[in-house]
Amino acid sequence: MHSNPAWAALLADALLALHLSLVVFVMGLLPLVLLGGARGWRWVRHFGLRATHMALTVFIAAQAWLGQLCPLTVWEQELRHLAGQGGYTESFIEHWLARLLYWDLPWWMFVAAYTGFAALVVGAWWWVRPSGRRAD
């Protein structure tokens, strides 16, 4: 595919929206699992959902420990470069999503936060045990 700047910018915005969706999934599922475990919600014990959540969380923490950026961030920035955007030129979507996702903090704080969150997700695996490999 030839690099069309407008297409690359649109794909970069879509990738940023996907990234935000994954952040909401990873961050939002943990409290729902804990609440659902206490309230008897069967869906929070779905093995595939929980395995996906754990895999994403451990992957994120491992990336932080390795000093690597998330692949979604790397791909988005490459698309922005193809679009001729020298960074964030701040479309409306990009402006707000980027403010939610990208914080200017020391790297060690991300490592600590991701590691702590991954530990909570692993703990939730034991506190609210998933059901067997099949959906209930």
Rank of each mutant, 00 (worst) to 15 (best):
T52C: 02
L20H: 07
A51N: 02
R80D: 09
A118T: 09
Q77R: 12
L49D: 08
L29Y: 14
H95V: 14
A64N: 05
T57G: 12
G48T: 11
W75G: 08
M1Y: 12
A9Y: 02
Q77V: 13
W127P: 06
D13C: 11
G86L: 10
T73N: 01
A62Q: 05
W127V: 15
L79N: 01
A12K: 05
G86T: 09
L16S: 00
Y114P: 04
Q63S: 05
I60T: 09
F110T: 12
R99A: 14
R42H: 09
H81T: 09
T57W: 01
L79I: 07
M54I: 15
F59M: 04
L32Q: 14
V74H: 00
A113K: 13
W107M: 06
Q63V: 03
S21L: 09
A14T: 07
L72T: 02
Q77D: 07
A17M: 08
G37S: 02
Y88P: 04
Y102M: 11
T57S: 12
W103I: 15
L10R: 14
E94K: 07
L82C: 03
L35W: 12
E78S: 12
L20D: 01
H81K: 10
F59D: 01
V74S: 03
L22V: 12
A12W: 02
G87F: 01
L105W: 15
R133M: 13
H95D: 04
P5N: 03
L56R: 00
A38S: 01
Q77W: 06
A62V: 13
L66Y: 03
G132K: 08
E90G: 01
A9M: 09
G123K: 07
A64M: 15
L69R: 12
R50A: 05
A6S: 09
L120H: 01
S131R: 07
G40W: 06
V23H: 01
L32S: 06
L72M: 12
Y114M: 13
V23R: 01
A17S: 03
L29A: 05
A9T: 02
W75S: 07
H53Y: 11
W96R: 06
T89R: 03
A14G: 00
A119I: 15
L66C: 08
G67M: 06
R50S: 05
G86K: 11
V128F: 13
L72F: 11
T57Y: 04
Y88V: 09
T115G: 09
F59I: 07
A64E: 02
W127F: 15
V24S: 00
Q63H: 02
G86I: 13
V58E: 00
V122L: 15
M1L: 06
Q85M: 15
W75Y: 15
A64D: 01
H95N: 03
S21R: 01
L22S: 02
L66P: 11
P130V: 09
